[in-house]
């Protein structure tokens, strides 16, 4: 039985991990773009992004997930997500990417604005281009500033993947729950908890490592 549960949970973990990784891969750059948008000189763009961020942060992720998964089928008359597990995971990643990009954009903006203007000016008077200033001067200082708030968000993301169960994606929590439904077993739920704890434990170590790595400057 233990082996059977482990096997099912491992397959749930694989789904959870996919949602986690793809959401990060897409939402980190999208969040940075949104952050640039919110500090751009173009007022309409700034306002547009502020409204989007307000809507996304102001409504439950679960609601967004349901709308993104079921909405297109009901509006267009055909499901844009391919059937089966793959379609459910894709829809989850899309919903999560939009949601997390909005949260990240706020953290990124804080990070960018936290770097003193004198740093950019020092780059300018040395004849650097805007992109050289961003990549060679601002970026690392910004990363150092945002590691603590980002670690919070990313750890939250691990646990938010459980929401994919709402649209019946067979992620980790879905897998643990299935044994309670089918055989009335509760211990797999605790076992599931251990999976999450290990996942988050590894991430915590990783963030500590990054913080240490960036400790060489102030």
């Amino acid at each position: 039985m233990l082996l059977n549960v482990t096997r099912t949970l491992m397959s749930g973990l694989a789904t959870t991990f996919q949602i986690f990784i793809f959401t990060l891969v897409f939402s980190l750059p999208l969040g940075l773009l949104l952050a640039f948008g919110t500090i751009s000189r173009c007022r309409p763009l700034r306002c547009l992004i502020q409204v989007v961020v307000w809507i996304i942060r102001g409504t439950p992720l679960m609601l967004q997930l349901i709308i993104i998964f079921y909405g297109p089928g009901l509006w267009l008359g055909h499901n844009i997500w391919s059937g089966g597990e793959a379609g459910r995971i894709t829809a989850t990643v899309v919903a999560f990417t939009i949601n997390y990009a909005c949260y990240f954009s706020v953290i990124f903006r804080g990070g960018i604005e936290g770097v003193p203007a004198g740093q950019r000016e020092a780059g300018q008077v040395l004849g650097m281009t805007k992109s050289q200033i961003f990549f060679k001067v601002t970026l690392l200082q910004m990363i150092k500033r945002i590691v603590p708030p980002m670690s919070n968000e990313i750890i939250t993301l691990v646990k938010d993947t459980a929401l994919a169960r709402t649209i019946a994606a067979q992620e980790l929590t879905f897998a643990g729950y299935s044994f309670m439904k089918s055989a009335g077993l509760t211990w797999p739920l605790f076992y599931t908890g251990i999976f999450y704890l290990v996942f988050v434990g590894i991430l915590t170590l990783l963030f500590n490592f990054i913080e240490k790595k960036l400790d060489y400057f102030r």
Binding site: P116, G118, E121, A122, V125, L126, G127, Q141, F217
Partner: peptide, 20 residues
């Protein structure tokens, strides 16, 4: 403007060295 700036060097009151 980058080339024009290079005619001048600037030392700031608050140093503005790159900490990294």
């Amino acid at each position: 403007i980058r080339t024009k700036r290079l005619h001048f060097g600037m030392v700031f009151q608050s140093f503005n060295l790159f900490p990294q």
